[in-house]
Design a protein around this nucleic acid. Sequence first.
DNA 1: AGATTACTTTACAAAGC
DNA 2: GCTTTAAAAAGTAATCT
Lengths: 186, 204
Amino acid sequence: MTDPADSIEIQNVVASTGIGQELDLEALAEDLPGADFNPDNFPGLVYRTQEPKAAALIFRSGKIVCTGAKSIDDVHEALGIIFEKLRGLSIPVEEDPEITVQNIVSSADLGHQLNLNALAIGLGLEDVEYEPEQFPGLVYRMDEPDVVILLFGSGKIVITGGKRTDDAEEAVEEIVERIEALGLLG
Amino acid sequence: RLRKWQERIRTKDAGERNLQFALSEIDRMASALGVPRSVREVASVIYRRALKEDLIRGRSIEGVATAALYAACRQEGIPRSLDEVAEVSRVEQKEIGRTYRYISQELGLELKPVDPKQFVPRFASALGLSEETQAKATEIIDVSAEQGLLSGKSPTGFAAAAIYAASLLCNEKKTQREVADVAQVTEVTIRNRYQEQIEAMGFR
DNA sequence: AGATTACTTTACAAAGC
DNA sequence: GCTTTAAAAAGTAATCT
Protein backbone atom coordinates (compact mmCIF):
# COMPACT_ATOMS: atom_id res chain seq x y z
CA MET A 1 0.00 0.00 0.00
CA THR A 2 2.26 2.78 -1.11
CA ASP A 3 0.77 6.19 -0.57
CA PRO A 4 0.70 8.25 -3.80
CA ALA A 5 1.50 11.29 -1.64
CA ASP A 6 4.89 9.72 -0.90
CA SER A 7 5.71 9.76 -4.61
CA ILE A 8 5.44 13.54 -4.86
CA GLU A 9 8.55 15.21 -6.24
CA ILE A 10 8.94 18.95 -6.69
CA GLN A 11 10.17 19.53 -10.23
CA ASN A 12 10.26 23.29 -10.48
CA VAL A 13 9.73 26.33 -8.29
CA VAL A 14 9.03 29.81 -9.67
CA ALA A 15 9.65 32.77 -7.37
CA SER A 16 9.98 36.51 -7.60
CA THR A 17 11.93 39.09 -5.65
CA GLY A 18 13.57 42.49 -6.05
CA ILE A 19 16.77 44.18 -4.93
CA GLY A 20 15.14 47.60 -4.52
CA GLN A 21 17.54 49.18 -6.97
CA GLU A 22 17.35 50.07 -10.68
CA LEU A 23 19.84 48.28 -12.88
CA ASP A 24 21.78 49.04 -16.04
CA LEU A 25 21.32 45.70 -17.78
CA GLU A 26 23.69 46.57 -20.64
CA ALA A 27 26.50 47.11 -18.14
CA LEU A 28 25.47 44.10 -16.08
CA ALA A 29 25.57 41.89 -19.16
CA GLU A 30 29.22 42.90 -19.60
CA ASP A 31 30.22 42.37 -15.99
CA LEU A 32 28.34 39.15 -15.37
CA PRO A 33 30.00 36.20 -17.15
CA GLY A 34 27.46 33.90 -18.78
CA ALA A 35 24.65 36.43 -18.79
CA ASP A 36 22.31 36.46 -21.80
CA PHE A 37 20.72 39.78 -22.69
CA ASN A 38 18.78 40.35 -25.90
CA PRO A 39 16.57 43.38 -25.25
CA ASP A 40 15.07 43.06 -28.74
CA ASN A 41 13.72 39.64 -27.78
CA PHE A 42 12.96 40.07 -24.13
CA PRO A 43 13.47 42.90 -21.61
CA GLY A 44 15.02 40.64 -18.98
CA LEU A 45 18.63 39.50 -18.61
CA VAL A 46 19.02 35.75 -18.17
CA TYR A 47 21.51 34.44 -15.66
CA ARG A 48 21.96 30.78 -14.77
CA THR A 49 23.37 29.35 -11.54
CA GLN A 50 25.07 25.94 -11.63
CA GLU A 51 24.61 24.84 -8.01
CA PRO A 52 21.80 24.79 -7.30
CA LYS A 53 20.74 24.74 -10.93
CA ALA A 54 18.34 27.57 -11.65
CA ALA A 55 17.71 30.41 -14.07
CA ALA A 56 17.07 34.00 -13.10
CA LEU A 57 15.45 36.73 -15.17
CA ILE A 58 16.81 40.07 -14.03
CA PHE A 59 14.93 43.23 -15.00
CA ARG A 60 15.85 46.90 -15.28
CA SER A 61 13.56 47.67 -12.33
CA GLY A 62 15.66 45.45 -10.10
CA LYS A 63 12.93 42.82 -9.92
CA ILE A 64 14.07 39.23 -10.39
CA VAL A 65 12.28 36.01 -11.33
CA CYS A 66 13.91 32.70 -10.38
CA THR A 67 12.83 29.45 -12.01
CA GLY A 68 14.10 25.93 -12.46
CA ALA A 69 14.98 25.25 -8.81
CA LYS A 70 13.96 21.91 -7.34
CA SER A 71 12.99 23.22 -3.90
CA ILE A 72 12.16 26.41 -2.05
CA ASP A 73 15.52 26.17 -0.28
CA ASP A 74 17.23 26.00 -3.65
CA VAL A 75 15.39 29.14 -4.74
CA HIS A 76 16.75 31.00 -1.72
CA GLU A 77 20.21 29.60 -2.29
CA ALA A 78 20.27 30.50 -5.99
CA LEU A 79 18.98 34.01 -5.35
CA GLY A 80 21.50 34.40 -2.52
CA ILE A 81 24.27 33.65 -5.00
CA ILE A 82 22.88 36.26 -7.37
CA PHE A 83 22.57 38.88 -4.62
CA GLU A 84 26.23 38.30 -3.69
CA LYS A 85 27.31 38.50 -7.34
CA LEU A 86 25.56 41.86 -7.64
CA ARG A 87 27.08 43.15 -4.40
CA GLY A 88 30.45 42.02 -5.74
CA LEU A 89 29.82 44.39 -8.64
CA SER A 90 29.20 47.11 -6.03
CA ILE A 91 25.50 47.20 -6.75
CA PRO A 92 23.54 47.91 -3.57
CA VAL A 93 21.22 45.06 -2.72
CA GLU A 94 18.71 45.16 0.15
CA GLU A 95 19.89 43.16 3.15
CA ASP A 96 17.22 40.50 2.95
CA PRO A 97 14.95 40.93 -0.08
CA GLU A 98 11.53 39.34 0.26
CA ILE A 99 11.19 36.24 -1.89
CA THR A 100 7.70 35.19 -3.00
CA VAL A 101 7.02 31.70 -4.29
CA GLN A 102 4.67 32.07 -7.27
CA ASN A 103 4.26 28.53 -8.49
CA ILE A 104 5.37 25.01 -7.61
CA VAL A 105 5.33 22.22 -10.21
CA SER A 106 5.28 18.70 -8.83
CA SER A 107 4.92 15.21 -10.24
CA ALA A 108 3.49 12.11 -8.59
CA ASP A 109 2.35 8.57 -9.36
CA LEU A 110 -1.09 7.27 -8.46
CA GLY A 111 0.18 3.73 -8.93
CA HIS A 112 -2.57 2.54 -11.25
CA GLN A 113 -3.42 3.02 -14.91
CA LEU A 114 -6.23 5.48 -15.53
CA ASN A 115 -9.14 5.34 -17.97
CA LEU A 116 -9.07 9.00 -18.98
CA ASN A 117 -12.25 8.75 -20.99
CA ALA A 118 -14.24 7.50 -18.03
CA LEU A 119 -12.48 9.99 -15.77
CA ALA A 120 -13.40 12.93 -18.00
CA ILE A 121 -17.06 12.02 -17.75
CA GLY A 122 -16.89 11.04 -14.08
CA LEU A 123 -15.11 14.14 -12.85
CA GLY A 124 -17.52 16.24 -14.89
CA LEU A 125 -16.96 17.49 -18.41
CA GLU A 126 -17.44 21.07 -17.18
CA ASP A 127 -14.31 20.92 -14.98
CA VAL A 128 -12.24 18.80 -17.33
CA GLU A 129 -10.32 19.37 -20.50
CA TYR A 130 -9.33 16.14 -22.25
CA GLU A 131 -8.43 16.45 -25.91
CA PRO A 132 -6.09 13.54 -26.72
CA GLU A 133 -5.78 14.80 -30.27
CA GLN A 134 -4.00 17.83 -28.89
CA PHE A 135 -2.38 16.58 -25.69
CA PRO A 136 -2.34 13.14 -23.98
CA GLY A 137 -3.05 14.48 -20.52
CA LEU A 138 -6.42 15.21 -18.90
CA VAL A 139 -6.48 18.72 -17.42
CA TYR A 140 -8.36 19.01 -14.15
CA ARG A 141 -8.84 22.33 -12.38
CA MET A 142 -9.25 21.88 -8.64
CA ASP A 143 -10.66 24.61 -6.39
CA GLU A 144 -9.32 23.50 -3.04
CA PRO A 145 -6.38 23.54 -3.14
CA ASP A 146 -6.34 25.92 -6.09
CA VAL A 147 -4.17 23.94 -8.49
CA VAL A 148 -4.29 22.39 -11.93
CA ILE A 149 -3.63 18.67 -12.26
CA LEU A 150 -2.58 16.90 -15.44
CA LEU A 151 -3.51 13.21 -15.33
CA PHE A 152 -2.04 10.62 -17.70
CA GLY A 153 -3.06 7.12 -18.71
CA SER A 154 -0.04 5.70 -16.88
CA GLY A 155 -1.31 7.04 -13.58
CA LYS A 156 1.47 9.63 -13.44
CA ILE A 157 0.30 13.15 -12.70
CA VAL A 158 1.59 16.73 -12.64
CA ILE A 159 0.37 19.29 -10.10
CA THR A 160 0.97 22.96 -10.88
CA GLY A 161 -0.29 26.37 -9.86
CA GLY A 162 0.20 25.84 -6.13
CA LYS A 163 2.18 28.28 -3.99
CA ARG A 164 2.70 26.15 -0.89
CA THR A 165 4.53 22.85 -0.57
CA ASP A 166 1.42 21.39 1.08
CA ASP A 167 -0.76 22.16 -1.93
CA ALA A 168 0.58 19.21 -3.93
CA GLU A 169 0.02 16.78 -1.08
CA GLU A 170 -3.52 18.02 -0.47
CA ALA A 171 -4.23 17.90 -4.19
CA VAL A 172 -3.02 14.30 -4.49
CA GLU A 173 -5.13 13.21 -1.52
CA GLU A 174 -8.15 14.97 -2.98
CA ILE A 175 -7.78 13.61 -6.51
CA VAL A 176 -7.23 10.06 -5.22
CA GLU A 177 -10.38 10.41 -3.15
CA ARG A 178 -12.41 11.63 -6.11
CA ILE A 179 -11.12 8.95 -8.45
CA GLU A 180 -11.77 6.24 -5.87
CA ALA A 181 -15.28 7.56 -5.32
CA LEU A 182 -15.88 6.98 -9.02
CA GLY A 183 -14.47 3.48 -8.74
CA LEU A 184 -11.90 4.35 -11.38
CA LEU A 185 -8.69 3.69 -9.46
CA GLY A 186 -7.35 0.16 -9.36
CA ARG B 1 -29.17 62.98 -33.58
CA LEU B 2 -28.14 62.12 -37.07
CA ARG B 3 -24.56 61.28 -36.06
CA LYS B 4 -25.73 58.67 -33.62
CA TRP B 5 -28.09 57.09 -36.09
CA GLN B 6 -25.40 56.88 -38.69
CA GLU B 7 -23.06 55.28 -36.20
CA ARG B 8 -25.67 52.77 -35.14
CA ILE B 9 -26.41 51.87 -38.71
CA ARG B 10 -22.73 51.60 -39.47
CA THR B 11 -22.14 49.37 -36.46
CA LYS B 12 -25.15 47.28 -37.26
CA ASP B 13 -23.98 46.93 -40.85
CA ALA B 14 -20.50 45.99 -39.76
CA GLY B 15 -21.86 43.39 -37.38
CA GLU B 16 -24.15 42.06 -40.05
CA ARG B 17 -21.33 41.92 -42.55
CA ASN B 18 -19.11 40.07 -40.06
CA LEU B 19 -21.86 37.55 -39.37
CA GLN B 20 -22.42 37.03 -43.08
CA PHE B 21 -18.71 36.55 -43.57
CA ALA B 22 -18.52 34.01 -40.76
CA LEU B 23 -21.48 32.05 -42.06
CA SER B 24 -20.15 32.04 -45.61
CA GLU B 25 -16.79 30.84 -44.30
CA ILE B 26 -18.48 28.03 -42.39
CA ASP B 27 -20.29 27.11 -45.59
CA ARG B 28 -17.12 27.20 -47.66
CA MET B 29 -15.13 25.08 -45.19
CA ALA B 30 -18.00 22.66 -44.71
CA SER B 31 -18.23 22.13 -48.46
CA ALA B 32 -14.50 21.57 -48.73
CA LEU B 33 -14.74 18.99 -45.93
CA GLY B 34 -17.82 17.39 -47.43
CA VAL B 35 -19.94 17.61 -44.31
CA PRO B 36 -23.75 17.55 -44.61
CA ARG B 37 -25.96 20.65 -44.46
CA SER B 38 -27.28 19.75 -41.03
CA VAL B 39 -23.78 20.08 -39.58
CA ARG B 40 -23.36 23.54 -41.15
CA GLU B 41 -26.56 24.60 -39.45
CA VAL B 42 -25.32 23.31 -36.10
CA ALA B 43 -22.06 25.20 -36.70
CA SER B 44 -24.01 28.37 -37.48
CA VAL B 45 -25.99 28.03 -34.26
CA ILE B 46 -22.78 27.56 -32.26
CA TYR B 47 -21.22 30.59 -33.93
CA ARG B 48 -24.29 32.76 -33.21
CA ARG B 49 -24.22 31.63 -29.59
CA ALA B 50 -20.54 32.53 -29.34
CA LEU B 51 -21.33 35.92 -30.84
CA LYS B 52 -24.20 36.47 -28.41
CA GLU B 53 -21.98 35.53 -25.46
CA ASP B 54 -19.34 37.94 -26.71
CA LEU B 55 -16.71 35.21 -27.09
CA ILE B 56 -15.26 36.65 -30.26
CA ARG B 57 -13.56 39.59 -28.55
CA GLY B 58 -9.81 39.19 -28.91
CA ARG B 59 -10.04 36.38 -31.47
CA SER B 60 -10.51 36.25 -35.18
CA ILE B 61 -13.91 35.68 -36.74
CA GLU B 62 -12.39 33.01 -38.92
CA GLY B 63 -10.93 31.25 -35.87
CA VAL B 64 -14.26 31.11 -34.05
CA ALA B 65 -16.05 30.07 -37.25
CA THR B 66 -13.58 27.22 -37.78
CA ALA B 67 -13.80 26.11 -34.15
CA ALA B 68 -17.62 26.18 -34.36
CA LEU B 69 -17.50 23.92 -37.41
CA TYR B 70 -15.04 21.56 -35.70
CA ALA B 71 -17.34 21.41 -32.65
CA ALA B 72 -20.43 20.87 -34.82
CA CYS B 73 -18.83 17.89 -36.57
CA ARG B 74 -18.08 16.35 -33.18
CA GLN B 75 -21.52 17.09 -31.83
CA GLU B 76 -23.09 15.41 -34.85
CA GLY B 77 -20.92 12.34 -34.52
CA ILE B 78 -18.98 12.82 -37.76
CA PRO B 79 -15.75 14.37 -36.46
CA ARG B 80 -13.04 15.89 -38.59
CA SER B 81 -9.54 16.02 -37.12
CA LEU B 82 -8.04 19.40 -36.31
CA ASP B 83 -5.59 18.66 -39.11
CA GLU B 84 -8.37 18.26 -41.65
CA VAL B 85 -10.19 21.37 -40.49
CA ALA B 86 -6.97 23.40 -40.50
CA GLU B 87 -6.40 22.41 -44.14
CA VAL B 88 -9.50 24.30 -45.27
CA SER B 89 -9.14 27.19 -42.83
CA ARG B 90 -6.79 30.13 -42.95
CA VAL B 91 -6.31 29.79 -39.20
CA GLU B 92 -3.51 27.55 -37.96
CA GLN B 93 -4.29 24.30 -36.18
CA LYS B 94 -2.99 25.40 -32.80
CA GLU B 95 -5.27 28.43 -32.78
CA ILE B 96 -8.28 26.36 -33.85
CA GLY B 97 -7.66 23.95 -30.99
CA ARG B 98 -7.34 26.74 -28.47
CA THR B 99 -10.45 28.52 -29.72
CA TYR B 100 -12.41 25.27 -29.69
CA ARG B 101 -11.44 24.60 -26.06
CA TYR B 102 -12.44 28.14 -25.16
CA ILE B 103 -15.89 28.23 -26.80
CA SER B 104 -16.54 24.66 -25.73
CA GLN B 105 -15.91 25.65 -22.11
CA GLU B 106 -17.79 28.97 -22.26
CA LEU B 107 -20.83 27.63 -24.07
CA GLY B 108 -20.87 24.49 -21.95
CA LEU B 109 -20.95 22.21 -24.98
CA GLU B 110 -19.68 19.31 -22.85
CA LEU B 111 -18.66 17.21 -25.83
CA LYS B 112 -17.31 13.82 -24.97
CA PRO B 113 -13.83 12.86 -26.19
CA VAL B 114 -13.82 11.87 -29.86
CA ASP B 115 -14.56 8.19 -30.38
CA PRO B 116 -12.05 6.64 -32.83
CA LYS B 117 -14.84 4.46 -34.24
CA GLN B 118 -16.44 7.56 -35.73
CA PHE B 119 -13.55 7.88 -38.17
CA VAL B 120 -13.82 4.31 -39.44
CA PRO B 121 -16.57 4.65 -42.10
CA ARG B 122 -14.99 7.71 -43.70
CA PHE B 123 -11.37 6.48 -43.66
CA ALA B 124 -12.32 2.96 -44.72
CA SER B 125 -14.43 4.06 -47.65
CA ALA B 126 -11.68 6.41 -48.79
CA LEU B 127 -9.50 3.30 -48.90
CA GLY B 128 -12.17 1.26 -50.64
CA LEU B 129 -12.50 -1.25 -47.82
CA SER B 130 -15.50 -3.55 -47.36
CA GLU B 131 -18.17 -3.42 -44.66
CA GLU B 132 -16.67 -6.54 -43.20
CA THR B 133 -13.28 -4.89 -42.76
CA GLN B 134 -14.92 -1.83 -41.23
CA ALA B 135 -16.74 -4.04 -38.75
CA LYS B 136 -13.45 -5.71 -37.88
CA ALA B 137 -11.75 -2.35 -37.33
CA THR B 138 -14.60 -1.29 -35.07
CA GLU B 139 -14.25 -4.50 -33.09
CA ILE B 140 -10.51 -3.97 -32.69
CA ILE B 141 -11.15 -0.46 -31.37
CA ASP B 142 -13.74 -1.70 -28.89
CA VAL B 143 -11.58 -4.52 -27.57
CA SER B 144 -8.38 -2.51 -27.24
CA ALA B 145 -10.15 0.51 -25.75
CA GLU B 146 -11.77 -1.76 -23.20
CA GLN B 147 -8.32 -2.95 -22.20
CA GLY B 148 -7.28 0.61 -21.47
CA LEU B 149 -5.13 1.22 -24.53
CA LEU B 150 -6.99 4.33 -25.64
CA SER B 151 -6.13 6.70 -22.78
CA GLY B 152 -4.10 9.65 -24.07
CA LYS B 153 -3.88 8.34 -27.63
CA SER B 154 -4.89 10.33 -30.67
CA PRO B 155 -8.31 9.12 -31.94
CA THR B 156 -7.19 9.34 -35.59
CA GLY B 157 -4.03 7.34 -34.95
CA PHE B 158 -5.99 4.76 -33.00
CA ALA B 159 -8.56 4.43 -35.78
CA ALA B 160 -5.87 4.27 -38.46
CA ALA B 161 -4.05 1.41 -36.72
CA ALA B 162 -7.28 -0.55 -36.29
CA ILE B 163 -8.14 -0.09 -39.97
CA TYR B 164 -4.66 -1.21 -40.98
CA ALA B 165 -4.93 -4.29 -38.75
CA ALA B 166 -8.43 -5.08 -40.04
CA SER B 167 -7.29 -4.80 -43.64
CA LEU B 168 -4.65 -7.45 -42.95
CA LEU B 169 -7.04 -9.74 -41.09
CA CYS B 170 -9.70 -9.50 -43.79
CA ASN B 171 -7.28 -10.01 -46.70
CA GLU B 172 -7.83 -6.53 -48.09
CA LYS B 173 -4.37 -5.29 -47.25
CA LYS B 174 -3.61 -1.62 -47.37
CA THR B 175 -0.09 -0.39 -46.68
CA GLN B 176 0.70 1.67 -43.60
CA ARG B 177 1.46 4.55 -45.94
CA GLU B 178 -1.97 4.39 -47.60
CA VAL B 179 -3.77 4.36 -44.27
CA ALA B 180 -1.47 7.02 -42.87
CA ASP B 181 -2.26 9.33 -45.77
CA VAL B 182 -6.04 9.21 -45.40
CA ALA B 183 -5.87 9.53 -41.60
CA GLN B 184 -3.18 12.21 -41.67
CA VAL B 185 -0.90 10.48 -39.20
CA THR B 186 2.59 9.00 -39.60
CA GLU B 187 3.44 5.38 -40.27
CA VAL B 188 5.31 5.36 -36.98
CA THR B 189 2.10 6.11 -35.09
CA ILE B 190 0.23 3.36 -36.95
CA ARG B 191 2.99 0.85 -36.20
CA ASN B 192 3.01 1.72 -32.50
CA ARG B 193 -0.77 1.53 -32.04
CA TYR B 194 -1.01 -1.56 -34.27
CA GLN B 195 1.44 -3.53 -32.12
CA GLU B 196 -0.55 -2.80 -28.96
CA GLN B 197 -3.88 -3.55 -30.59
CA ILE B 198 -3.03 -6.95 -32.05
CA GLU B 199 -1.65 -7.97 -28.68
CA ALA B 200 -4.89 -6.83 -27.04
CA MET B 201 -6.81 -8.89 -29.60
CA GLY B 202 -4.85 -11.95 -28.58
CA PHE B 203 -2.97 -12.25 -31.85
CA ARG B 204 0.68 -11.74 -32.12
C1' DA C 1 13.45 0.63 -38.25
C1' DG C 2 15.62 3.07 -34.33
C1' DA C 3 17.52 7.14 -32.25
C1' DT C 4 17.36 12.04 -31.41
C1' DT C 5 15.42 16.24 -31.01
C1' DA C 6 11.50 19.04 -30.61
C1' DC C 7 6.97 20.38 -30.11
C1' DT C 8 2.00 19.94 -27.73
C1' DT C 9 -0.41 21.08 -22.28
C1' DT C 10 -0.56 23.26 -17.24
C1' DA C 11 1.05 27.47 -13.82
C1' DC C 12 3.65 31.89 -12.70
C1' DA C 13 6.37 36.22 -12.28
C1' DA C 14 8.88 39.96 -14.67
C1' DA C 15 8.70 44.79 -18.70
C1' DG C 16 7.36 46.18 -22.96
C1' DC C 17 5.18 46.02 -27.31
C1' DG D 1 -2.31 38.79 -26.59
C1' DC D 2 3.00 37.99 -27.29
C1' DT D 3 7.94 37.72 -26.04
C1' DT D 4 11.58 34.40 -22.05
C1' DT D 5 12.74 31.01 -18.24
C1' DA D 6 12.17 26.17 -15.98
C1' DA D 7 10.26 21.37 -15.23
C1' DA D 8 7.28 17.06 -15.41
C1' DA D 9 3.97 14.01 -17.78
C1' DA D 10 3.15 10.98 -22.81
C1' DG D 11 2.00 11.26 -27.60
C1' DT D 12 3.19 12.65 -32.10
C1' DA D 13 6.29 14.19 -35.65
C1' DA D 14 10.43 15.42 -38.40
C1' DT D 15 14.99 14.24 -39.50
C1' DC D 16 19.12 11.42 -39.68
C1' DT D 17 21.55 7.12 -39.76
